[in-house]
Simulated scan of single mutants.
Amino acid sequence: MNRTTAYVTATGVALPEQPATPAGEARGALPAPVVRDLRGRAGGSPHTLLFGAHDLVVVTGLPGSGKSTLMRRAVRGARVDSQDTRDRWDRRMPRLLPYAAYRPLVRLSHYAGLRRALRAGGGVVVHDCGTQAWVRRWLAREARRRGARLHLLLLDVAPQQALDGQRERGRGVSRYAFLRHRAASDRLLRAVERGEPPAGCGSAVLIDRDAANALRHIGFAG
């Protein structure tokens, strides 16, 4: 049985169980999504988030909010991060070649890697910039197909913190792109706060920078 567990103490506190839909079962009513808000806990956030063995987890938030840092530090298991794909291509390209010239190749490579990871059948944590809603729809279909759940881990960071994060890593996005990301992220955050995660999500977990820093393990049970 797939379930999402947020361990707050040594004994652990679990989110309500979400039974898996058997693969191939006709579409029907799904359990209402669970929304868990871990923001503003001043050090009382869980150190571990565990999901079902075949579940999919999308980590989303503003550019510079710390998604890649969190994934590299905490994910135990398969992870697909577009930043890793870009870094690999950056090392192969001439230093003076602008990123825009090979951005389409990076995106194709990223989605090809995501497809390979999904075909393996196990749990996967996926980096999402927040503006590509079709990616979440793809992942929701894949989770449903395998009788698992899609979960959203939303990193809620103030725009200035995100811009500072971009400066710290020495890589940013254009003002126009950042405004697009901000608008999409704000819409998603407001919807989740109303208890309305994107269609197909079994749960959504809201975290701020402190909660992200407290997380040491994001993994899959079983």
Rank of each mutant, 00 (worst) to 15 (best):
T4G: 07
T4V: 12
T5H: 12
A10D: 13
T11C: 02
P16G: 05
E17Y: 08
Q18P: 02
P19L: 12
A20F: 03
A20D: 09
P22E: 02
P22N: 05
P22W: 01
P22I: 00
E25D: 09
E25N: 00
A26L: 12
R27M: 04
P31T: 07
V34M: 04
V34P: 02
V35I: 13
V35D: 04
V35W: 02
R36I: 12
R36S: 15
D37Y: 07
L38W: 03
G43P: 07
G44P: 05
S45C: 10
T48V: 14
T48N: 09
L49S: 08
F51T: 02
H54K: 09
H54T: 13
D55E: 11
D55M: 02
D55C: 00
L56Q: 08
V57A: 05
V58A: 15
G66A: 04
G66L: 06
S68G: 07
M71P: 00
M71G: 00
A74M: 09
V75L: 01
V75N: 01
V75C: 03
G77N: 06
G77T: 06
A78D: 09
R79D: 00
R79L: 10
V80S: 10
V80L: 06
V80F: 03
S82V: 13
D84M: 11
T85Q: 07
D87P: 03
R88A: 15
W89F: 15
D90I: 15
D90G: 08
R91N: 12
R92W: 13
R92N: 11
Y99M: 11
Y102N: 06
L105A: 14
L105P: 00
V106I: 14
V106F: 06
R107N: 15
Y111I: 11
Y111P: 06
G113I: 01
L114C: 08
R115I: 00
R116F: 04
R119Q: 12
A120C: 02
G121R: 08
G123V: 09
V124F: 09
V124W: 03
V125L: 01
V125W: 02
V125M: 01
V125T: 11
V126N: 03
D128T: 04
C129S: 13
C129M: 08
A133R: 12
A133Q: 08
W134H: 05
R136T: 15
R137S: 14
L139P: 06
R141Q: 14
E142I: 00
A143W: 07
R145P: 04
R145M: 10
R146A: 09
A148F: 02
H151R: 06
D156P: 00
V157L: 08
A158L: 09
P159Y: 07
P159W: 02
Q161W: 05
S174C: 00
R175G: 10
A177P: 07
F178V: 07
R180H: 13
R182A: 14
A184Y: 05
D186A: 12
D186G: 05
R187V: 12
L189C: 06
R190F: 03
A191V: 10
E193Q: 15
R194K: 12
E196C: 11
E196Q: 14
A199Y: 01
G202K: 09
S203Q: 04
L206T: 07
I207Y: 05
I207G: 09
D210E: 13
A212V: 06
L215H: 07
R216D: 14
G219P: 04
G219H: 08
F220L: 03
